[in-house]
Design a protein around this nucleic acid. Sequence first.
DNA 1: ATGTCC
Length: 364
Amino acid sequence: MSKVTVIATENSWMEGEALRQLKLAANLPGMVRAVGLPDLHPGKGIPVGAAFYSEGMIYPHLVGNDIGCGMGLWLTDQKAHKFKIDKAVKKLDGFEAPWAGDSAAELDAADLPTDLWPYALGTIGSGNHFAEFQTIETIVNKDAFDEAGLEKGQLYLLVHSGSRGLGESILRRHVDRYAGLGLSEGTTDFDEYIRRHDQAVRWGVLNRRIIARRFLDALGLNGKSKLDVCHNSVTASGKGWLHRKGAAPSDQGLVVIPGSRGSLSYLVAPDQSPDISLWSLAHGAGRKWKRSDARAKLARYRVADLTKTNLGGRVICEDKDLIFEEAPKAYKDISQVIADLEAFGLIKVIATFRPIITYKTRRR
DNA sequence: ATGTCC
């Protein structure tokens, strides 16, 4: 088997730079295999939408700064057809401010130090992060849908966020000393990175939970957590270590693969977890355009054109640069990403979700 | 991606 695998059909466009970055990372010392998922796109030297399996070494810069980033899905007690969208949009505000709840108690309950980055807990952050209310668009596999405990006519909340400044601080601590070099198994620094990384992963899970609680509280709703899937991490796997950078796990149950804010999201069941993809799936549509290019390419659009998507969804994003960078057109076609995963026998689609309100930021 | 910047 070749060292580099790309999970994509000829129907998927993939940037040459992303493939170059993938091959470069595949040749790092100790690297055994590298996989590009169909949402592969260039990052800062490291491609996003990729999984890397190494032995004897780990590479913190392959995981990146947002250790523990992922997707959480909540089923709310709100009937979708009775949901008052305009009213909700007005109520959704102030999530940039620190959460007013008892962060120390939540951290303690999550088995984390009570002073671990408490001020950012419950905040979404920026970039591609969001909290989004969704409804069921289509049910493809009713048995699996029912088995997952999902309900057709309800409102859902999807949260995409990570470990905020905590993960950033952990990566910076490593990079300041080692730059792009890896850490050897059995060393103190290796163990210390893994310890901090694991904390950041748990912090990310807790962050998504508190974000969800804030959003549900703001609208007077209750919600049940249905899944939480991390797509930036490094974990022990077999004799070595599996790095996922913008890659969802295919060996931990159901996964939500979100599209852009103007396309559907997909709930999928990983199919058998074949190791061709290093037990990984795409984590989203993947960027088509660099952030720095989006503004120029969308010059004919105004902010008002971007606050409502082609699917009729509302986007709350008062940061003018960010709304261009995150416009649906800046992303690849999620249906092609899904089709490629299906073509490789990696997933079965259970249902699709339609975005109703996406909250990015009220910060100008 | 970033308590995002001195």
